[in-house]
């Protein structure tokens, strides 16, 4: 990696981290969910700055090429994330159902009470 490329990558990663922090501050992203993204940003910076880190890791894990290892890790992490999102969506779905039911039951009750009043 040339020094120019390194500097560019570090800058981009810092922008990435700043972007995440901004979303957390605007309360668009829950803090508990933001940790994953923040940690990924910090790891990226380590990978760029520490010389030979990726190279050694590739050898250690037995990959032939660095890019293979990076793609492999990325895909695994992406799968995990998608799975976790599916779980969250299921939970939101169940919660939504009971909310709709309760509100609808309450509306019916209110209507009945209003009728009795008349």
């Amino acid at each position: 990696m040339t020094i120019n490329l390194k500097i560019a990558l570090v800058i981009i990663t810092f922008i990435y981290i700043a972007f995440i922090l901004k979303e957390v501050k605007r309360k668009k992203l829950q803090i508990s969910l933001s940790t994953f993204w923040l940690i990924s940003g910090i790891l990226l910076i380590f990978a760029i700055l520490i010389p030979n880190l990726v190279e050694n890791l590739t050898k250690l894990l037995g990959f032939e090429v660095q890019s293979n290892m990076l793609f492999c890790i990325t895909i695994f992490v992406a799968f995990y994330l998608i799975f976790e999102l599916t779980i969250r969506v299921s939970k939101v779905y169940t919660n939504n159902i009971s909310l709709v039911q309760e509100i609808s039951l309450l509306k019916n009750r209110i209507e009945q009470l209003e009728k009795e009043k008349k």
């Binding site: 939504n96 159902i97 709709v100 039911q101 509100i103 609808s104 039951l105 509306k107 019916n108």
Partner: peptide
């Protein structure tokens, strides 16, 4: 006499609303 679900829940969610009503 009816309960109007404010969002579409599908048959299962609708029937459960009925059971809740029956229980209450």
């Amino acid at each position: 006499n009816h309960i109007n679900l404010i969002q579409n829940l599908g048959i299962g969610g609708a029937v459960q609303t009925g059971y809740k009503y029956a229980y209450q």
